[in-house]
Design a protein around this nucleic acid. Structure first.
Lengths: 117, 117
DNA sequence: AATATATATGATAAATTTATCATATGATAA
DNA sequence: TTATCATATGATAAATTTATCATATATATT
C-alpha cells in the first residue's frame, strides 16, 4: 500500500465532508434533526424556511456524506441525523464559543472583511 | 437574551470554522503540524509544496479560526496546531474511513460528478 | 543604512459553490 | 388511470472561494 507524501495528498473526502457541514443551511438542517428528531422534507421546509428544491439538493449532499440517513414513509422521506455526527456537532461548539469573535474575522481566505461579510 | 428561531439562524462562525477545515491545502497544513509538530512557514512550504503567499493566506485563515497558534522566532514565525483541534482531526477519521466511497460522491451540491471531480 | 531573508497583504482572474427555476419521478388517493 | 402530494433532478446565473501575482513589511545581518 502506497503512502502518499504530504505534498501529494489531496484529502478529497475530508474536503467534501467538512464542506458539507460548512454550509449554513446544511448545518441548520443538522441542528434541526439533532434537536427535534427525525423529520420529513416538508417538515424541514416549514421549520427552516428553505425552498423545496434547494432543501432537497442539500439533503442529498448530507446523505452522500452520511451525515444523515433516510427512510421512506408512504410518500414522505424521513431524514435522521447520523448518531456519530451528533458528538461532532456538539463537541465543536466548545471551540467555536471560545473563539467566536476571532472566527468571525476569518474571512476565507483573503483580505479581512472588505465585503462587510 | 434573544434566542433566534431556526429559520433565522445563520451560523456564520460554524460556517467559517468548517469552511476553514474543508479546504484541502489547509487540512494538509493541519495534518503536517499535527504529525510533525510546530513549524515555520518556509518549512511548511518545503514540506507541502504550497506557494508562499498562498500558504500565508491560508495560515491566516487557520489562525483566525484558532485552529493554529503562532509565535515569533527571530525572523521566522512558528505555527502550531491548537490542542483541542487535534481531537477533532483524529476523531473524524473514523467516520470518513467508514463512509469514504459515499462521501466521494457527495458533490457539493448539485448533479453528481458531472465534472469528473 | 543598505541588503537579505522570512512572511504578509491586496488585487484580481479563475474555479467552485450556491440558489433558483423548470421539470421529472414516485407514491397514494380519488 | 388520472390527479395530487411529496420529493428529486438538471441547468444555469449569481455569489463565494481559491490561486497567483506584485508588492509590502518586519527582522536580522553586513
Amino acid at each position: 500500500m502506497i503512502k502518499m507524501s504530504f505534498d501529494e495528498k489531496d484529502n478529497k473526502s475530508i474536503s467534501l465532508f467538512f464542506g458539507a457541514i460548512s454550509n449554513p443551511k446544511r448545518f441548520r438542517i443538522l441542528e434541526a434533526l439533532n434537536e427535534k428528531g427525525p423529520m420529513c422534507v416538508s417538515e424541514l421546509q416549514n421549520l427552516l424556511n428553505i425552498e423545496q428544491s434547494n432543501l432537497s439538493h442539500n439533503l442529498k449532499c448530507l446523505l452522500n456524506c452520511r451525515l444523515v440517513s433516510r427512510e421512506q414513509n408512504g410518500k414522505e422521506k424521513i431524514y435522521n441525523i447520523n448518531e456519530d455526527i451528533k458528538v461532532l456537532v456538539n463537541s465543536i461548539n466548545e471551540h467555536i464559543k471560545a473563539y467566536d469573535t476571532y472566527i468571525k474575522s476569518c474571512d476565507i481566505v483573503n483580505p479581512v472583511n472588505t465585503k462587510g461579510r
